[in-house]
Design a protein around this nucleic acid. Sequence first.
DNA 1: GTCTATAGTTTGATAGAC
DNA 2: GTCTATCAAACTATAGAC
Lengths: 209, 209
Amino acid sequence: MLGAPTRDRAAERRSATRREILDAAWALARERGLSDWTLRDVATRIGMRAPSLYSHFESKLAIYDAMFGQAWSEYEALVRDCITSPDVSGAPRTVIRSMSRLFFDFAVADLARYQLMNQRSIPGFTPSAQSFAPAVRVVRISIEQLTGMGVTDRGDVEIWFAILGGLIDQQLANDPGGHSRRDLLDRAVDMWADSVGLAPETPKKEQEQ
Amino acid sequence: MLGAPTRDRAAERRSATRREILDAAWALARERGLSDWTLRDVATRIGMRAPSLYSHFESKLAIYDAMFGQAWSEYEALVRDCITSPDVSGAPRTVIRSMSRLFFDFAVADLARYQLMNQRSIPGFTPSAQSFAPAVRVVRISIEQLTGMGVTDRGDVEIWFAILGGLIDQQLANDPGGHSRRDLLDRAVDMWADSVGLAPETPKKEQEQ
DNA sequence: GTCTATAGTTTGATAGAC
DNA sequence: GTCTATCAAACTATAGAC
């Protein structure tokens, strides 16, 4: 007698099509802006007609929702990699610099993605609980990291977030593709770290004090 | 013989209508979001029909442009008032706190206005040179103020801007209408001021050099 | 699942009478 | 300057054949 197939080829194909749709949407978002593309554009790019997309997503907002979840999941994976890597088991100053660079670089690498993840610029779009989950986890992990290095005041955490967000916004708005604010990142983070009392990275020889 | 009229009543009326249109657009932007209103909405609100607006503005983008210029002019006036007021001829620490609060409060008071002034969220909109002029002047004035208090490094200026912008974004995105980040403003600005070497506001008694 | 065909809406903008 | 009437275009979404 025949055994049941061990792979569900139909499901695999369906999942691949879903990914194709999302990839096309990302590409269009990067090329033209987060919301400057239509379902027709997406369909055309993958050799389909617009109505066919409705077999895979129930609306355009559902596509945004999937993209939102995808972006935050991707970033969550990076964060988890980062905090388990050897160079982040070191001095607090090293850790906070690594976390800051990770967030900055990820944000600046893709304007459309950053807008989707961190600004609410699409009318009517609110992420579903499922898509929002990885974002919540990233914030929790970040706070745990800071707590672990002695930063327990929630206000200090918010100020750190604000410094990062502010530099990112300026980089994207005033010097997209450049690195002027990236060059200021360590200085700004050190300023914050000094203020909250993190030990300096290289305590040369108990300099002054 | 008859003297020419000293007032141009037609011009006054025209200018008043223009202002009515802009006021209606602002109100709608605040109520529904920066771009969630139509020319029909604006017209209805002032008792007109949509096509009549074209006697006063050549397009919807032209309305945005006028709003952009209006917002920055308004802010420029506030800044000029602020820097000539008595309490800002004092210690650098006092001045920088005043400037920071002024910007923060103005930004947070109106989300739609902030988005129009500082983010590029309207597809196809670029401010005209004329509307952009007050924004340029505000930046110039701010830099002059900082220079006057000894902050000459451009990077330090950028970091100050970033801290302000970051706190504003967080306030608007995560606690609109609240004051959680406003409560952190002085702390964050002092952190920056300490780092760039501004004298403390109340130099109690040469504390720890 | 993908297609054709089209509904149903909304919108910025124009033409031309008054 | 304001109106009525209407265009032209764009877009999401649905119905139903294959």
